[in-house]
Design a protein around this nucleic acid. Structure first.
Lengths: 330, 330
DNA sequence: AGCTCGAATTGGAGCGCTCCAACAGCGGGG
DNA sequence: CCCCGCTGTTGGAGCGCTCCAATTCGAGCT
């Protein structure tokens, strides 16, 4: 059952192809009479415009490509919410793709997205090499969420990871903790600033830092625990993110320690996971939905050519104290 | 910066357009010499084929559209994993979209997906009216995950929700529970069979059923608790899904009850959420990744015209006992 | 040398649409 | 009564690609 084309509609309505095209894009310069006839014919045939043909002919695209590094992390779902509402409001359609936290798969995903010739690209938490991102940005506007960039053709939306980590450390110190370790996000996006913030804050407080390499997953959190306990036992932990923190807590419980009685744990992101009463994780909040919306806005502005320089949004994180942290029992 | 076209590559390599086309689709009937020349030219120009033009010309599509009802539910992330690997293996590209659990937004999302003229459509947990689904299936192969259908042009992949619920009830009964309530998924996909299974099992055991209307969200779970406690207090609860169960538990704790000491709770889905040591939820496992893979397979088969009747996969769920259920303390 | 045949290559038509220049009406001003 | 300028409408070209029939080429055979 071949779908009807614009030609079929034109024939049935007794008008030209071009006129149907005008009606479909509701141009004002069509008489009410013809408009009605065309709409009726389209309705009867069940016609809907072929997006690909349209964007081929018009040399424009109404698609915003979104690459999500990890669909399992609830953080991204909320960023996508913001992106979706922002893009939809501006008349763009979201096409989502996933990269599975691996550079190779991300490359594939990026190529896939690019082959749609999207109006813009949002890369969420990508681990792609800077070169690949710069190359993509030569073709289409790119906005990076949770990843910074020096490239002037690339927009970015980030929270201030350094400040966030510092807030977390300050909080722990104020509770009397001194042995505070950090499980980092490894090569993941935003891992570096968070680590830097941790180190800076520890130094400022005259404390000895200890960083254990990790990843933004629950498994990595659980895996880090034995490593952590092998050395001098920390009384507090700053995890890479909420997912990681949950893994850490599981690992600690496994090892016979309780949270927060024996060890305080701080997460990062403030996803709904952290807010679960079971988990009740002290964490650093990022305005996720807002970040998505800003990303959409940046893209739209660039598409419309409304801006000269690159957009660099740096949002201020906020500490959310729940029950996974408490004063040192001493 | 207009991207290079096939024409540019052809000119640079000193061959015809058609030859470049053949090379790009690595046809065997191209001499090694020309192939190398073309690839070199393409490389130098940074050429990559325009997917839309390609599918327009070839009247085929390598896109599988995926509509996810709720990106926040970790269940779908895992189904998408399976779908992704299945589709990718068959040479298809996933285009994901989200419907936000609302029929209106799902309609929009569906239209958006359809306007790409995808090779197939996977609707995950959709709440769309059957008519809309049937209409879509007239245009392109459709597979439904976690939603059943009588339409012969629509494939389905489901777990046996009725059996799953019955297993859960049987488990609770075997622990000595009698006052077992069910918070259902409301109008959500698969809510009906799960409810039916619950009712059937209760009847079989000669117990009085009690269903509270809910939704597949954490919030709905928490909200159901006061309603539940207003009547005779149940000693066990079967939640709509894991997300819902987590909300229920939060609500119970809020109300001063503990799980499983005062009330046993069973979830559904066995997402990673249930496996968290904090949560350690007894739940009904659905083979999520497998379901995604079967969905991809169904689509691929239909696209290739390898099947006559509709595919109807009904997978058997499995009870996973963790620590949110225990014997009645009496 | 002439011929055939398969493999390699090519030009042209066409996918469904948009854009543009051109054109048909049709009142109103000269 | 003609021409102007408007609003509405139209045919044709072309977007980047694939497909097909046709063509070239070279080797293998007689």
């Amino acid at each position: 059952m071949p779908r009807p084309t614009i030609e079929d509609v034109a024939a049935r309505a007794g008008v030209s192809r071009a006129l149907v095209s005008l009606v479909m894009r509701d141009s004002p310069k069509v008489s009410a009479l013809r408009r009605a006839a065309v709409l009726k014919a389209a309705e009867e045939l069940g016609y809907s415009p072929h997006l690909m043909a349209r964007s081929l002919a018009s040399r424009t695209s109404h698609v915003v490509g979104v690459m999500v590094s990890d669909l399992h992390n609830p953080f991204w779902a909320e960023v996508v919410d913001g992106l979706d509402s922002g893009a939809r409001a501006a008349g763009f359609e979201l096409v989502i793709n996933t990269g599975g936290r691996s550079p190779a798969r991300e490359r594939q995903a990026l190529d896939g997205l690019l082959s749609f010739r999207p109006a813009g690209l949002a890369l969420l938490g990508t681990v792609l090499p800077a070169k690949a991102i710069a190359a993509a940005s030569a073709h289409t506007p790119v906005v990076l969420v949770s990843r910074s960039s020096r490239t002037s053709t690339v927009d970015t939306v980030n929270d201030d990871g350094k400040a966030g980590s510092m807030m977390a450390v300050d909080h722990l110190v104020s509770l009397g903790h001194q042995e505070i370790a950090h499980i980092d996000g490894g090569g993941g996006s935003q891992a570096a600033p968070r680590r830097a913030g941790y180190l800076a804050a520890m130094r400022r407080h005259g404390l000895r830092p200890r960083v254990v390499r990790g990843e933004y997953t629950e498994a990595a959190g659980a895996a880090a625990v034995p490593v952590l306990l092998a050395g001098r036992r920390p009384t507090a932990l700053l995890a890479a993110n909420d997912l990681n923190a949950v893994g850490v807590i599981s690992g600690l419980v496994e090892a016979g320690l309780s949270v927060p009685e024996d060890v305080s744990v701080v997460g990062y992101d403030n996803t709904w996971l952290a807010a679960l009463r079971h988990v009740s994780l002290t964490t650093v909040d990022q305005p996720r939905v807002e970040m998505g919306r800003l990303a959409a806005q940046a893209l739209v502005r660039r598409v419309r050519g409304e801006r000269s320089g690159p957009a660099r949004h740096l949002l201020t994180p906020r500490l959310v104290v729940r029950s996974s942290t408490r004063t040192t029992g001493r």
